[in-house]
Design a protein around this nucleic acid. Sequence first.
DNA 1: CTTATAGTTGGATTGTTGTCAAACAATAAG
DNA 2: CTTATTGTTTGACAACAATCCAACTATAAG
Lengths: 112, 112
Amino acid sequence: MRLLPHPSTENIQLTEVLRALSDPVRLEIVVRLALRGEMTCGVAGDDLGVHKSTASHHYRTLRESGVVMTKQEGRLKYMSLRRDDLDSRFPGLLDAVLSAAGIPSTGVPVQR
Amino acid sequence: MRLLPHPSTENIQLTEVLRALSDPVRLEIVVRLALRGEMTCGVAGDDLGVHKSTASHHYRTLRESGVVMTKQEGRLKYMSLRRDDLDSRFPGLLDAVLSAAGIPSTGVPVQR
DNA sequence: CTTATAGTTGGATTGTTGTCAAACAATAAG
DNA sequence: CTTATTGTTTGACAACAATCCAACTATAAG
C-alpha cells in the first residue's frame, strides 16, 4: 500500500480548497465521496461526462488542495474526503458546502 | 440612488460563490466588508496591491456571483455583503469561510 | 465651464484551466 | 510472457482570468 503526496493539515490553504470546490465536476466527486465514503477513482469518476484523463487531473487538484486523501492498493487508487483535517482546519466549511450541494447534514458536532 | 444588476437570491450558484471567494484579493475585500460593513469601492480596494481597474474587475466578479450588493449614490458606489441572501441560500457557508479567514464568529443563529 | 473625484471599460499581455486524445506505467490475471 | 485493467502523463488547444495602462463616463465642486 502506497500513499501519495498530500499537503499536511496545517498547510491546507483556504483559497485552494475553495478553488478546488468551485468546479462542478470536482464538486460532484466530493459529493459522491461524502455520500458513499472511500471509493476508487474509477467509481468516483464514473458517468461524469468527461474523459478519464480529465477526471484524473481533477483527482490531482483535489488531492493537492488537501480535500481528498488518496492511497494506492494494487492497481486501484482509493480516494476519501479529508473530513477531520478539513474540519479541524476550517470548522464548518465542508459541512456547509456539502449541505449547500444538497447533502443531508452529517451529524458533525454542533458548536456551542 | 441606483442599483446595479445583481443575481436574485435563488439564482446564486454555489460554484460561482466558491470561485469568487477563492481569489485572495476578493477574499480580502469580503473580509473587509464583513469587518466594517458597507463601504465604498475606494475604501474596500485601498492598499490591496492591485491597480484600481483590477480591483474594479473584482468588484464585478463579487457582484455577479451574488456575494456583494452594490448601490450607487452620487459618484460613490457602496458595496455590502449579501449576508442574508447567502445565509438563506447556503446556510453556514459564509460564516465558515469568514471564520476560516480569521474573522471572529458573527453570532449567527446556532443550528440545533 | 472647468476641474477634480470615483469608478468602469477596453486593449494587451501573461498565465492558468478544463478538455480530449494518445501514449504510457503499473499491477493483476490467464 | 501476454493481455486486460486502472489510472497518469504529455501535448495540444481553446477559453478564461488576473493584471496593468490608458482612455473614458459620470457626478460633484469651484
